[in-house]
């Protein structure tokens, strides 16, 4: 990846962050912390890695993305807006009555949303099903998933992690958004969760560990995943919850609340300065 491409992905990630902040502020509720933490992964997937066509969202050979941690819907919507699946101005309708942009992603409402999520722990199973279908139909489709590090407390994640390996889903790639925080506090305080890489390795996965805000590292991980055959790849992406908005960074309170008007302005100004 060239330096220009890297800069472009970083710029897109910041625009995704702007969309996240603005949409949640307009909604008056939502989940900024875990949306901001995945912005760099989203930018890299949608603008460098995935084979998608916003003009033909149901293209059968497309790659697929599942936001298993559905409360990061603002990150998904902002990305889909940047990628042309939905109009950017629609982001300001997030969570409002009659909006397509439901509080958690609905596949029946929004083009580009591949699976309805929000009840945690379920996206990986669905992604497995998509990866299996692609193999049955001999399609080049690759399936990408983001799961949260609080979400993995749901047992179904581990059921699905066994399935991915058993079915040899080398067309599947999972990013663990490892930001260390969940609603009630630090992950380690809520329920011990050490060395995720070792856990998934023990399950038989091909595991990588990266800085989840380094677009070059994200891209390289995807390339390595593509080159891996016979087993799925899980990327432990070390991230900062609230990344890009200093007063939200690593602050557990910003898991699920909207910024005030002043806070929104402060956040937007900060992000815009990085774009200048």
């Amino acid at each position: 990846m060239t330096k220009e491409e890297t800069r472009e992905l970083q710029r897109i990630a910041q625009h995704i962050r702007l969309g996240i902040v603005k949409s949640i502020a307009a909604a008056g509720s939502g989940h900024p912390g875990g949306s901001l933490s995945v912005a760099d992964i989203m930018a890299t997937l949608y603008f460098k890695v995935m084979r998608i066509d916003s003009k033909n969202p149901k293209w059968p050979d497309r790659d697929r993305f599942v936001m298993s941690k559905g409360h990061a819907a603002p990150a998904l919507y902002a990305t889909l807006a940047e990628a042309g699946f939905i109009p950017k101005e629609e982001l300001l309708t997030l969570r409002q009555f009659n909006s397509r942009l439901q509080g958690h992603p609905s596949m029946r409402h929004v083009p580009g949303v591949e699976m309805s999520t929000g009840s945690l722990g379920q996206g990986l199973s669905a992604a497995n099903g998509m990866a299996i279908a692609a193999k049955l139909d001999k399609r080049p489709t690759r399936v990408y998933v983001i799961i949260g590090d609080g979400e993995v407390q749901e047992g179904q994640i581990w059921e699905a992690s066994m399935t991915s390996v058993h079915q040899k889903l080398d067309n599947l790639m999972v990013f663990l958004d490892h930001n260390g925080l969940q609603i009630d506090g630090k992950i380690v305080d809520v329920k011990s969760f050490t060395d995720p890489a070792a856990r998934w390795r023990a399950f038989g996965w091909h595991v990588l560990e990266i800085d989840g805000h380094d677009v070059q590292a994200i891209y390289s991980a995807c390339e390595e995943g593509k080159a891996t055959s016979g087993r799925p790849t899980l990327v432990v992406a070390h991230t900062v919850k609230g990344k890009g908005v200093p007063f939200m960074e690593n602050a557990v309170d910003w898991h699920g609340k909207a910024p005030s008007q002043e806070q929104e302005e402060e956040a937007i100004n900060h992000i815009k300065r990085s774009l200048a």
Partner: peptide, 16 residues
Amino acid sequence: AEADMMGTAAGLAASG
């Protein structure tokens, strides 16, 4: 793993 089975079925259904 019934929960995983239903989720996997969902992904298959979403793929036709």
